[in-house]
Nucleic acid binder design. Structure first.
Lengths: 76, 76
DNA sequence: GCAACTATAATTAGGAG
DNA sequence: CCTCCTAATTATAGTTG
C-alpha cells in the first residue's frame, strides 16, 4: 500500500540514496518545466547543472540555444 | 467566482497579454524549482533566459554559480 | 498592470515489485 | 538499478479587486 507523498524539509537530503533519487526526479521535472516555458512563451531557455560527483556540467538543451544567441559557454 | 486552472495546450500562447502573464508566472516557478533543487541535492544550477523582446539574457542566480565553477558565459 | 484568490492540473516523496 | 503507484503537496490558468 502506497503512502503517497510526504512533506519535505527544504534542506540537504542527508541519505545519499534518497538524495540521488530526488536528484534524478527533480532534474527531469525542471527540464520539463523549462521546455514547456520555451514553447508556451517562445523564449529560449538554457539550464546548466553541475552533478554532485562531477565537474562536467550538464547543459540543457543538448544543442544549447546560447550558441545561436552568440553566447559562448567556455570552460576555463 | 474563480474557475481555477484550466488545462493548457502545449503550444505558443497566441494572446500577447496572456503570454506575458504566463511568462512571468512560470519564470518564477522554474527559478523556485531550481533553487529547491540546489538546496535539496547540493547541486549548483544556473538558468539562462532570453526574454521575448530583448537580446540581454536573464541569468539566475544573479551571481552565477558558473563563475565559481571556472566557467565563463561570454557574449561574443 | 499588479497582487490575491481558488479550483484544478501537475509534480513528487515514499514505498512496492 | 529500474518502473509503477498513489496520496499529498505544489504550481498555475483564469478570474477578480
Amino acid at each position: 500500500m502506497s503512502m503517497g507523498r510526504a512533506k519535505l524539509k527544504m534542506e540537504l537530503i542527508a541519505k545519499e540514496k534518497t538524495r540521488n533519487t530526488t536528484y534524478h526526479k527533480r532534474k527531469q521535472g525542471i527540464i520539463k518545466k523549462a521546455n514547456e516555458f520555451s514553447i508556451l512563451c517562445d523564449v529560449d531557455t538554457s539550464i546548466i547543472i553541475f552533478p554532485p560527483n562531477s565537474n562536467e556540467p550538464e547543459i540543457w538543451p543538448e544543442n544549447p540555444v546560447i550558441k545561436s544567441r552568440k553566447i559562448s559557454l567556455l570552460t576555463c
